[in-house]
Design a protein around this nucleic acid. Structure first.
Lengths: 209, 209
DNA sequence: CTTAAAATGACGCAAATGCGTCATTGAGAA
DNA sequence: TTCTCAATGACGCATTTGCGTCATTTTAAG
């Protein structure tokens, strides 16, 4: 049983060369060639793997990803990308692509990547991995200012984030409403904010959560 | 110029076999063998690459990572991990490891990974990549409910997140305070919340931000 | 063209909030 | 031991907020 691979790529030469490589290799078959998401979606056969150019005229690869996933839920989708598109790789990941390889990856590695994807791995070239990881780092809370809050203050802040009102907080902590307000006042001062909403935003961004 | 590689790993056999592989291979030298972070830190020579076991007795690989990075800022650090430790991989990434390979990776691939790391890439085996990406997904806002908000409502919600009061929002958007309040009321209903703080939390978690 | 949402605006009221000022207690540092 | 600071509590007041109810207009969809 050969692995059935579809390729969606508007650049004719590149597309042809990939399909040639696939058909020449043992265990691979190019089961479809398309120059756009739209035309690929008209196809009814579900391939094992879809190679998807991240940049396509009309509907981009990123936009098309969810549609393809919906129509071909069992296909593994590998994004084809060129070096500079780190932001796009990021978005592909969020959309649930199964792998990301550089277009200039040598043929043998491309075949390897396709096999990896079929086996449930996420083929990623080292450089792309690094880019993606760096981007993800931005989304992960860093601990900073909030650490200057006292234990009690953090406790109250997290209750605020939970959505409790001052009243509910006072009940939950068995302290008076006045005390709660005082604590909140102090929190505001330390975080340099003037309302709950602002405090919540700061707290979340800096990772009390 | 061979690549100088240190290995920190408490399991003697594994350590020996890696150092043997390194010294046997063209272009690699095992410049140090340690069974703990502590002993590795006593060493003064900065290797090109450090292979670091993620599970070490005493100080774990994850705890040691920052210390090693500080002492050997130019060394690339590759974590050695076994299959099940997905959470730990995640923490390593946050601590800034340069790569992650499974211990059972075949020797040739390990050497490849070391070269990748030296060249600035992040060697990751497909399986690990998949695990890591899945974990990261949890930290990234998913767009859901918030998308049922109208354009105007999203606009107002994002101003709330910026920390503006209803009054300031009305000025900024050239609409009356009443209107702002009505919008907010609708936002609350759609998000199923009853205060700004709660709305902010929901909005951030589901990615209006 | 008709109909359904949005978006806009308004009034009022009870409750919650933000802030100024002050006081007491207990734990830990100097 | 004295002194500071976090935690606790309190009073008052001007604003802001959340919500009920309603109305007009624009926009989008059918």
């Amino acid at each position: 049983m050969s692995i059935r691979v579809s390729i969606i790529e508007d650049h004719v030469e590149f597309r042809k060369s990939i399909s040639f490589i696939l058909n020449s290799a043992e265990g691979f078959i190019c089961s479809g060639e398309f120059d756009s998401i739209e035309s690929a979606l008209k196809n009814e056969e579900e391939p094992d793997v879809i190679l998807l150019d991240i940049n396509l005229p009309g509907m981009s690869g990123i936009e098309g990803l969810p549609l393809l996933k919906k129509k071909f839920p069992n296909s593994k989708i590998i994004m084809l990308t060129v070096f500079e598109e780190d932001k796009k790789v990021f978005h592909s990941i969020l959309s649930g692509a199964d792998g990301y390889i550089l277009k200039k990856t040598p043929p043998t590695r491309i075949l390897q990547a396709i096999e990896d994807a079929v086996e449930g791995g996420a083929p990623i070239t080292p450089i792309i991995a690094k880019q993606a990881l760096n981007l993800f780092m931005n989304y992960v809370p860093k601990k900073n200012e909030t650490s200057c809050l006292s234990v009690r203050e953090k406790e109250i802040l997290s209750l605020i984030i939970t959505g409790l009102s001052n009243d509910e907080i006072s009940e939950k902590l068995f302290i008076s409403l006045h005390t709660v307000r005082n604590h909140i006042r102090n929190i505001y001062q330390k975080l340099q904010v003037h309302s709950k909403s602002q405090a919540v935003v700061k707290a979340i961004k800096q990772g009390i959560l």
